[in-house]
Each structure stands twice: as structure tokens, then as C-alpha cells.
Design a protein around this nucleic acid. Structure first.
Length: 496
RNA sequence: GAGCCGCUAGCUCAGCCAGGUAGAGCAUCGGACUUUUAAUCCGGUGGUCGCAGGUUCGAUUCCUGCGCGGCUCACCA
């Protein structure tokens, strides 16, 4: 028998002992009337003398996190969704409840009834008059001092991570608050929140490799979406002039600290807005989120100070290649030299790339990681932007920006291409480039082109990677720290 | 996919370099204890050292392969 079997067996025996006494170890309900936070808020400032005059009784419930037993009295902590609170129970005043505690284990859920007081060391504590088991725990919790630090266990058994690490809970509370703030910001600007298909016959709107699935009754192959873009723009065509969706995208690519196969994206579209308007809106929206979260514009990420005070730096891609990347114009005009440069950095080139693709290639290698403060990089090559409107000043470029913070791409936006003829040509060129890719069979979304043929108003659209934004605002180094259940290989269990 | 690092009790970690089949703290079990808070004191239980091979009289330790994880790179408009 291994140690865990021993510990669980002991707990099962205690469970049986409790049952023998006619106690239900899994009672159905327990009406609480206070949380730990309530008690702290109401009594945290009171003196011991004031607390003595409290006549109200409070009913709390939570997980038993520690016990310090003194024979005829004991201290323990309970933890609920709002925090931890100490309780004190003594034989003299709690009688049966006291002997009952001895049968419980750390990890069990308990309900307590009592009143607040202060101990000799001045800690706010509940003097317990009644104690009840609410749910038995059969697995031992990690140790009280070091807690749970093993990252693999934290990801695989997130419930344990949440029980043991308040910081983890806090990250996900902040994540929820960030998303709520964004939602409210957009709703206040008359955007309509919508949901579009996760399962799509043609995986469009980005160029990632999709996950494939199958609908049995229809005998239909489908893809999990890599982006909602083409559907959201159909809605703009349909007259929903301001729409947004916050939901999952799925990309069948490698996993890293920046990439999870399913991740959350905000996409929004605003008719009669240009990419210029969206830059301003982005500053306002993210600025608003940062303020709501930290009460200012200053954030520290992994030891780097990031200042979100608007306006943020705006720079064309070419300019960034010159000033940040240190490339001169002669180099930037010479595809052969750029190819050599990229090959020297072990970046794969196939010789077919145009200058535009090569420029974004060296941007990723030499510039991206240096953009620490929020920076809009604007005016991308047409070649790498099949869904964006051309710049009237230079039709080889498009009205597009990407937002970079701490060296990472956080947002991608453009004035949308609404010329159906141009769009069809660009799709066809894309199909030509992708020919022979078995994982990502090229297909043209005919219905999307047809929709454009009905007419789309001039529109600005943007996507923001929510997970990456949350990482920066919660100081998390890995995307797995901001996704409750990140994808891991299945664990191999025992003898199976 | 590649390189590097890790995997020892429920948890957090020693031990491995210089091979002799394992230790600590916490948790847990028994005992003492009515204001502790990493409670304290006394005494116990608990491990196929990630898995499989190899070398060796003998492997947690050395070698090889595999698994899982982490980081970096690659991939990813």
C-alpha cells in the first residue's frame, strides 16, 4: 500500500465513524448568512471590548485549512471564496461540536455558527458555538507552508491550485474583471455582442492551421474556427454596424508561453470607422481597462515598467525597420540581402516571398521584441494583408496596424477591404500560394465574397488577444497561467 | 520538431558528481496540552527513487531509449 492509499484509507475510516454516529457526511443544504469578507468588513476595525457586546450570531461555511488542537480547545481556519478566517472552539462552550472537530480532516467542508471576538494576539476570530461537517474530503491537501508549487500539478489539477494559491484565484478574478470592463466599454458605445460559428465549413479570417471535425448526420467535414472575422463582417453587411464577439479561437499550431491551441479573442467591427479611429479607440479601451484594474496607467510586467498613458507611439512598419531595427533603405530594397539575413537567423524562406513578406520577416526578428511600451506599427504590406483596404497614397500597402506591448503582438486591426472584386482576386492569389498544403486545403469562402457583393459599408475591424492582454495586466509569464485548463498531454496513470 | 533542465513519501526538498537498494520538514496516526497562528513536546506509519533496458557482485546514483513537464529556439501573416 502506498502512502496516498494509507492517507485516503484513514479518511474513509473517519467517514465511516461519522456515519456510525448517525451524521450525514454530505448534507444537502446549509444556509449561510455571512462570508469571511463580511465578518472582516463588519468587525475588522472593532476593539475587543466592542466585540464583546456583539449579540448577533453568524453562520459561515468553508473548507477547513488548518487545525491547531490544544486538547480542550482548538483553533482552525476556514476558507471560503472571499478568504480565510480563524475560528476558535472549546470543549466548555461547544460541547459536542468540539469532540466532532477531532473526527474531521483538513480539506473537509464545515459550517460554523458563532460570534466574532479577538484573541490575545488580537486576531479577529469566530468563537464557535456549533460546528457541522458539510462535505468530506478523502484526498490530503498539499502542505500548509510551501503549498503547491509544482507547475504540472497546478495546471493538471487546477482545483488544487485554486485551493492552495490565492494568487491563482486572484489572476482569474482579474481576468473576469478585464473581460467585463471591455464588454461594458463596447456596450456603452452601442456595440452589439454576438456569437458566430465555432464550426465552419471553410476556416477563414486568418492563415493558421485549423482543427478538423466532422458532423455525422450531415456527413460534413467542418473546421473549428481560426477566427470569427468573416462572419462578423457578414453581420456588418447585414446592417449590424457595430458588433463584437469575445470567444474562443482554435489554431492547430505549436504550444508555447504565448500560444495555447484554444485562446480567447475579442474581435469588433465598426462601420464608418477607419484604422485611425480604431487606434484612438484602442488607447481608450485598454487605457480604461488598465485604470479600472490598477487605478492608473502604470503597470509592471516581469520587472519592466509599462506606461499606458495615451497617446501611444505610432510608427510605420518601414520606419520601425529603420529606427528600431537599424536597417538602411538600400538593404530594405534588396530582397536577396534580406533573404540572406533571414537565413542566417535560421528563418525559413522559400525564395518566393515578396519584399512585403520579407519586411515583416525581419520585423519579427529584429524589431518586435524591442517594442516594450505600447506601440502601434502601421501601414503593412498588401502581400501579408489579404483582408485589408489599400492605402490610397500607396496601393502596395494597406491601412492596418498591429499593437505591440512588452515585445508581443496584442492587437491587429485594419480598415476592412470592402471591394468584392479585389477581395476575390486576393483570395485566389492566396489559394495559389497555399496549393499542395494538405493540412490546410485551400478553399475560397464564396458566400463571403457574395456577401461583399451586396455591399459592405466602409468599416474598421480589430482583434485583441485577451489572454496576452491578461498576462500583461496580471504579470503572468505564461499563457497557461491565465487559462484555467491549458492543454497538456494526458497524464499516464499508474498501471493503465 | 531540436537543445538544455527537471521527475525521490500526500506536499516541499536533500541524497546522485566520486555506485553498497533512502533521509528531513510539514501532513498523517497514537499520547500530552483551554488564546494558538509554520503552535509546542513525546512516540510511530508512510517510498517498485517517472518507466523500460544496459553496465556491474551490487544502480535512486553511471549509460541508452521512452514518458510527462518546464525554459529556449523553430513553427505560427
Amino acid at each position: 500500500m502506498n502512502g496516498l492509499d494509507t492517507l485516503s484509507k484513514q479518511r474513509l475510516e473517519k467517514l465511516e465513524a461519522v456515519k456510525q454516529e448517525g451524521i450525514d457526511p454530505y448534507p444537502n443544504t446549509f444556509p449561510v448568512n455571512a462570508t469571511v469578507r463580511d465578518i472582516r468588513k463588519q468587525f475588522g476595525e472593532m476593539t475587543p471590548e466592542q466585540l464583546e457586546n456583539v449579540t448577533d450570531r453568524f453562520v459561515l461555511a468553508g473548507r477547513l485549512m488548518s487545525i491547531r488542537d490544544f486538547g480542550k480547545a482548538a483553533f482552525f481556519h476556514i476558507q471560503d471564496r472571499t478568504g480565510r478566517l480563524q475560528a476558535f472552539i472549546q470543549k466548555k462552550t461547544a460541547g459536542d461540536g468540539f469532540s466532532y472537530l477531532k473526527k474531521l480532516d483538513i480539506g473537509d467542508f464545515v459550517g460554523i455558527k458563532g460570534k466574532p471576538f479577538r484573541t490575545k494576539t488580537n486576531e479577529l476570530t469566530v468563537l464557535v458555538e456549533d460546528l457541522q461537517l458539510l462535505s468530506k474530503s478523502l484526498q490530503p491537501l498539499p502542505e500548509k507552508w510551501h503549498g503547491l508549487t509544482d507547475v504540472e500539478t497546478r495546471y493538471r489539477q487546477r482545483y488544487l491550485d485554486l485551493i492552495m494559491n490565492p494568487v491563482t484565484r486572484s489572476v482569474f478574478e482579474k481576468r473576469s474583471a478585464i473581460i467585463q470592463t471591455i464588454r461594458n466599454f463596447l456596450l456603452a458605445r452601442d456595440f452589439l455582442e454576438v456569437e458566430t460559428p465555432m464550426m465552419q465549413p471553410v476556416a477563414g479570417g486568418a492563415s493558421a492551421r485549423p482543427f478538423k471535425t466532422h458532423h455525422n448526420a450531415l456527413g460534413l467535414d467542418l473546421y473549428l474556427r481560426i477566427a470569427p472575422e468573416l462572419y462578423l463582417k457578414r453581420l456588418v453587411i447585414g446592417g449590424m454596424e457595430r458588433v463584437f464577439e469575445i470567444n474562443r479561437n482554435f489554431r492547430n499550431e505549436g504550444i508555447s508561453t504565448q500560444h495555447n491551441p484554444e485562446f480567447t479573442m475579442l474581435e469588433f467591427y465598426q462601420a464608418y470607422a477607419t484604422y485611425e479611429d480604431l487606434m484612438t479607440l484602442t488607447e481608450e479601451m485598454i487605457g480604461h481597462v488598465v485604470q479600472a484594474l490598477v487605478g492608473g496607467f502604470a503597470v509592471e510586467y516581469q520587472g519592466q515598467k509599462v506606461d499606458f498613458t495615451p497617446p501611444w507611439r505610432r510608427m510605420t512598419l518601414r520606419e520601425s525597420l529603420r529606427t528600431v531595427g537599424g536597417f538602411d533603405d538600400e538593404f530594405l530594397r534588396d530582397p536577396a540581402k534580406i533573404r540572406d539575413f533571414l537565413e542566417a537567423r535560421e528563418v525559413q524562406v522559400n525564395g518566393k516571398e515578396g519584399l512585403g513578406k520579407l519586411h515583416t520577416g525581419i520585423f519579427e526578428v529584429e524589431v518586435e521584441s524591442k517594442l516594450i511600451q505600447p506601440t502601434f506599427i502601421i501601414n503593412y504590406p498588401l502581400e501579408v494583408s489579404p483582408l485589408s483596404r489599400r492605402r490610397s497614397e500607396d496601393p502596395t500597402e494597406v491601412e492596418r496596424f498591429e499593437l505591440f506591448i512588452v515585445g508581443r503582438e496584442i492587437a491587429n486591426a485594419f480598415s476592412e477591404l470592402n471591394d468584392p472584386v479585389d477581395q476575390r482576386e486576393r483570395f485566389l492569389r492566396q489559394l495559389e500560394e497555399r496549393k499542395g498544403d494538405e493540412e490546410n486545403p485551400p478553399e475560397l469562402d464564396e458566400d463571403y465574397v457574395r456577401a461583399l457583393e451586396y455591399g459592405m459599408p466602409p468599416t474598421g475591424g480589430e482583434g485583441i488577444g485577451i489572454d496576452r492582454l491578461v498576462m500583461i495586466l496580471t504579470d503572468c509569464p505564461s499563457i497557461r497561467d491565465v487559462i484555467l485548463f491549458p492543454l497538456l498531454r494526458p497524464e499516464k496513470r499508474g498501471s493503465e
